[in-house]
């Protein structure tokens, strides 16, 4: 029997390589995808001093609901905010600026209404000083240096043909990586000076979305970063994701919701009938 031609060897080698890659990729995906239910971290772990959160805004309704969700945002814990808007969505960008201004205003009112002697709280009182001090370091982080608005190209324009959608979506995906990797520095080529600036220049700790099309692509981009553990995305536990299904969804999940339900770390629904969808949806009551 004649030995098989070289091309056959090449083919079988190639097939074996593909199968190995496929198995490896599947195992990796299984390890990065969240488990069935979110397990809160053990209490002993110290929460981070500075954090960056990524907030994905979408067309009118999604943006409205997002700012209702974020109404009690504590800027002393969430020290840097990145708002992601689609190109051409001036409304959402405007709302983000207004939201930040309202946060600042709220803090001013709070400060002025305090008694002068209590304005500097948690000074060392007695023996419990050290423990108190750790909480006392947290101060509000407000103003334009503590947030940024990132613009990504729209994945699909209204009336765009389905044929070109994959290409524009790919464009959106590629534009998502720099947005996830860092917020722009305050001064060009300047290294971060404080832990807060370092957090702002790092991967986000938390990605918050409520379902615009852009969100699906950004979450996909965050998965790719976790898959290859770029900048320690996976090993440092960065980019935890939370999806909040729209308040208007009572009985069925939205398309974005169905796409993301198995992928995000926490999937929250606001109506009881949606509880346990895909074995993962958590019912939290009305959050908006």
């Amino acid at each position: 029997m004649a030995p098989p031609p070289a091309s056959l060897w090449a083919l079988s080698f190639f097939l074996a390589l593909l199968v190995t890659l496929f198995v490896a990729a599947t195992l990796r995906l299984l390890s990065i995808l969240p488990h069935v239910r979110f397990q809160p971290k053990p209490l002993c772990k110290q929460p981070p001093v500075a954090t960056r959160i990524l907030i994905i805004l979408g067309s009118g309704g999604h943006t409205h609901e997002m700012f209702y969700l974020l109404r009690d945002l504590d800027t002393s814990k969430y020290t840097h905010r990145t708002y992601v808007v689609s190109s051409g969505d001036a409304f959402s960008a405007q709302r983000a600026v207004e939201f930040e201004q309202a946060l600042e205003q709220r803090e001013t009112v709070k400060f002025e209404s305090k008694e002068p002697e209590s304005r500097n709280p948690d000074v060392f009182l007695n023996g419990t000083g050290i423990e108190k001090q750790q909480h006392a370091v947290r101060t509000p982080h407000l103003g334009p240096e503590n947030y940024n608005i990132a613009i990504v190209p729209r994945a699909r324009k209204i009336h765009q043909s389905l044929f070109t959608t994959p290409f524009t979506s790919l464009h959106t995906l590629l534009s998502s990586f720099p947005v996830l990797l860092s917020s722009p520095p305050l001064l060009p080529d300047q290294l971060p000076q404080t832990p807060y600036e370092a957090a702002a220049r790092d991967l986000p700790d938390l990605v918050i979305t409520n379902g615009p099309a852009t969100a699906v692509i950004l979450v996909l981009a965050s998965l790719i970063l976790k898959f290859f553990n770029i900048r320690g995305a996976q090993s440092r536990g960065k980019m935890k994701s939370v999806y909040v299904e729209s308040f208007a969804r009572v009985k069925t999940l939205s398309l974005s919701g169905r796409l993301l339900v198995r992928v995000v770390d926490r999937f929250l629904v606001q109506w009881e009938e949606l509880e346990g969808k895909a074995g993962r949806a958590e019912y939290c009551g009305i959050l908006v």
Binding site: F38, P40, K41, L43, K45, Q46, P47, P48, T51, I53, L69, L70, D72, L73, D74, K77, Y78, D205, L206, I208, K240, V242, V244, D265, R266, L268, C284, G285, I286, L287
Partner: peptide, 17 residues
């Protein structure tokens, strides 16, 4: 208290307890 707040859920996820 009837439900969790979204701020509370965010805190839970990042370990702010």
């Amino acid at each position: 208290r009837e439900t969790k707040s979204f701020a509370g859920i965010m805190d839970e996820m990042l370990g702010f307890v």
